[in-house]
Nucleic acid binder design. Structure first.
Lengths: 344, 344
DNA sequence: ATCATCTGCTAAATCCTTTTAGCAATTATG
DNA sequence: CATAATTGCTAAAAGGATTTAGCAGATGAT
């Protein structure tokens, strides 16, 4: 009940040594000359009393808090956040750190507030995460602070972690080709503006660039490129329905994300077309719903969890190359593409 | 560059007053007798220097950190987490607090670790969140700590925030009845064990209890109750396909969650049945996918965001009734149920 | 024997606030 | 007019760690 917190002084007293000695021993200083016996006594005393250092006091002295700030634009609307946060949490935990979660809604004013709140608490580093990979405005920070951009890029802060979209684009084409699909392929969700990288997603433009590069190399080309602004299920439905209504002789779909693919499934279902027999479908993201679709959707997974882990690793590493760190997107093979040995 | 952090002493010096005065003025103490002029000078000095208090120092002195710990079993697997976290973040932000996010995977050892990490950082309160509402084991905490259970219950900690599942169950039946559906109704996802509340979900058993209570009152009963253990899309598919194969003359489906409903859609689609004309569907959760289904799924929304907000409110309120605080689940009307003025 | 070096340890300062106790001058009270 | 109360403010302690500077005794070098 009324027992006060155990302090270092208590430990020192029980061990019969000075606070200095206790501190040095417990923090594991390297070149101290304290005896083995002193070490043993201090550790024993700490264990006996259940000593836990007061981190506020330590922070006051050392300016280190073993806390990292995760500042994201939106946790809310997107299920993508989960993986990034989970990976971050996991890696932080392993490194004995803890995560302060802050959300800005992408509004500069709230970004400034969030940064100040984090600075006030003397976090050891910042992870700025965007839910759609893009160039993010980051208000200026005292130079000493370490920053990693997660699923985002920034002029000021060159260390960033991104999915390897270009390579995924290439791999998707290779996968289709190796399944015997070289013609009659429709691209669902092409968007000129996105492709040029002006808006929304830095990386999705690379996804497309990878697709086109690999197709060029193999002498392939799209039979149709259906374009839309947003990439929701409803848009996928409309685009594919349009294709079918116009009787374009499409033989396979490459959807730019899983929600578009979901919409495509709906349109194909209504038209009585079977996947993959009548129409194989390949997509990107590995959204949760990809596994729930019937048949399961073959898709290239955004490696969010690994990205979160990598961000923490970079943040805490003694030194780091100031580059983009690309994480591979692996194919998740399901039944929407036939002739391929499938896994879950 | 090399400029050090501005401290309270700097502010006091510039204002020509003592640190004590500066502290009292900036923390807005009520009954101090400092002159209006002193107030003005201190505020001016603080503004001029861009003073921000060192929260570590303050925490050391006051034991308050304006930080709350959000300890959850799983952020990962479930999209439900988003709403809870977002609501928490929002309300915390409004109250000038910040959120430490910790994940335990439901493992007691990690729970203990997470609590210690949070205690070490002197958080002002704990929110324990479970992704499926249930009784959660919480390792013992120093009695002084405030605790709110979010989407969870605990013997030790009586303040909890839960969705009002019972009432939602009743409302679902009322909604079906008012749409003219009184017979031929099938329940998808019934599960004896869940209903008795032994496992997984404290609240889903109430959902069922509400359904049954309202049906009894109206003299209604189910034509079929299809039971399964897990509530994934695949199970919904199997159950509904089974019903159709057995030619049970079902006229409407009440699914216990949206993923089951998703599976039901798939089975109905394959059988060539139209929703809602041939088969209306009503469900629970308002999962993200409910809006993306065709037709849109009418469902009772889990009010996760409000729940998160309420949890913070309760945590920071001066005093609180040690009860369950139930948050209403509102109907989201879409096209899967006809004869009802539909929204969105 | 003398001086330097090493060994094993500690006293005290420091980080930055908040808070307690109290001082000196002024005003009110009997 | 003496005493009490009020006003407006400050010095110093406290909170719990880390770190700097340095002490006393033992050992080694010359």
């Amino acid at each position: 009940m009324g027992r006060k917190r155990v302090t270092l002084a208590d430990v020192a007293r029980l061990a019969g040594l000075s606070q200095t000695a206790a501190s040095m021993i417990l923090t594991g200083r390297p070149d101290t000359r304290l005896s083995a016996e002193a070490h043993a006594r201090v550790h024993a005393a700490a264990a006996e009393l259940g000593y836990r250092p007061n981190l506020a006091a330590r922070a006051l002295r050392t300016d280190k808090t073993r806390t990292i700030a995760f500042i994201s634009d939106v946790v809310a609307t997107t299920r993508f956040a989960n993986g990034l946060i989970r990976g971050t949490l996991e890696a932080a935990d392993k490194a004995g750190h803890v995560v302060l979660l802050l959300e800005t809604g992408g509004e500069p004013a709230r970004e400034v507030q969030a940064i100040e709140a984090a600075l006030d608490r003397q976090v050891d580093g910042f992870i700025f995460a965007a839910m759609r990979a893009r160039e993010v405005f980051v208000p200026s920070l005292p130079a000493a602070n370490r920053v990693v951009m997660l699923n985002a890029t920034s002029r000021k802060h060159p260390v960033s972690v991104l999915p390897d979209e270009f390579e995924a684009g290439r791999a998707a084409i290779r996968l289709l080709d190796s399944a015997g699909i070289r013609e009659g392929l429709a691209l669902i969700g092409h968007n000129q503006v996105v492709e040029e990288g002006y808006f929304r997603s830095e990386t999705v433009s690379r996804r497309l660039a990878g697709i086109r590069a690999e197709m060029d190399q193999r002498g392939m080309s799209f039979l149709a490129e259906e374009s839309c602004w947003n990439w929701e299920a409803a848009h996928g439905y409309e685009l594919v329905k349009g294709l079918l209504d116009r009787r374009v002789p499409v033989e396979a779909l490459l959807c730019l994300n899983d929600r578009l693919a979901f919409g495509a499934y709906q349109a194909l279902g209504e038209a009585g077309l079977r996947i993959p027999r009548d129409m194989p479908v390949v997509s990107f993201d590995n959204d949760e719903l990809a596994a729930d679709l019937r048949p399961g959707l073959t898709t290239f997974a955004l490696p969010h969890e690994q990205m979160g882990q990598e961000a923490v690793r970079l943040l805490l590493a003694p030194e780091v190359e100031p580059f983009e760190h690309l994480i591979a997107m692996t194919a998740v093979l399901r039944q929407s593409l036939a002739n391929i040995g499938g896994a879950d």
